[in-house]
Design a protein around this nucleic acid. Structure first.
Lengths: 148, 148
DNA sequence: GTCCATGCAAACTGTTTGCACGCGC
DNA sequence: GCGCGTGCAAACAGTTTGCATGGAC
């Protein structure tokens, strides 16, 4: 959304800092992680400010929030090409992938049902390649019946 | 040998009650909604019990939890045919849809990347058909790209 | 009698908010 | 100066947990 800033100061030091941290992160940091990194560069920044900056940046369309199945939000810079996420249940690693077919499916559904779809999240979880291979041949992890 | 499970009483009155409520619900109730309905039939059931019952039923594979973009869990009976969810940002209505193509995409990705995918959530949000038509032409809710 | 499940309240996590101060314009 | 943005702490929502009691076998 590109409304012109009819009000005064918008992109403050702290907000810029939060944005930079997200931009420079290969991960998908959560608010706590962002706070930690922010504190390394500005000891007095508070968690509330991080959340407010995140809200601001989301509203500005610069940052997106994703729920990656861990009960709290994760953040990344808004990207023009849609992409989706796989979360490893074992090591919590997040792998991004693109799947262009998805938007076609979604578009079809939208038209079929009269829905105006503005957000699409395809979230996979399971065991990532690394964890699978470092694992002493477990027979059937697929059903998730037991374990830590 | 003993056909009994190694542990004793499993499917108690309260757990059955929670399960029935979810089964009979066309909606996707959250814990609070389940508590309310449960209280109508057993005044002394507690929220903690609801949560413990939900954990038990999930573990038993009878119930699934979904994050529908509202910051808290929603529950439904586990279904054999996978399906996905659209949440209306305006009226919070949840619409289910199936999209068989999705599992193919996911299967492809899994093989390609060596991931073992156990869970797939495709979550859409936007404006539902009802809200769109009952809407007196709102100026800028309709930016097709991303976001609020 | 043995355990597990329950109820209650308190703890906990992630996030939001009220209020007074403070910085940038 | 003025107003928005900040920091702090308290409030909040959703969920989990410790502990003593109660129920089903």
């Amino acid at each position: 959304m590109s409304t012109k800033p009819s009000h005064h100061q918008r992109l403050t030091h702290q907000r810029r800092l939060v944005l930079e941290i997200i931009e420079n992160s290969q991960e998908h940091p959560d608010a706590e992680a962002i706070l930690l990194q922010a504190r390394a560069r500005d000891a007095r920044i508070s968690l509330a400010t991080v959340y407010r900056a995140l809200a601001f940046l989301k509203e500005a369309g610069l940052v997106q929030e994703h729920s990656l199945g861990q009960g709290h939000g994760h953040f990344e810079v808004a990207q023009s090409t849609p992409h989706y996420h796989f979360t490893c249940k074992q090591c919590a690693r997040v792998i991004e992938f693109s799947a262009p077919e998805v938007i076609d499916i979604v578009r079809g559904l939208g038209e079929e049902r009269g829905l105006q779809v503005t957000d699409v999240h395809l979230l996979l979880s399971g065991i990532c390649d690394r964890c699978r291979s470092s694992q002493p041949a477990l027979p059937h992890l697929a059903d998730g019946s037991s374990h830590p």
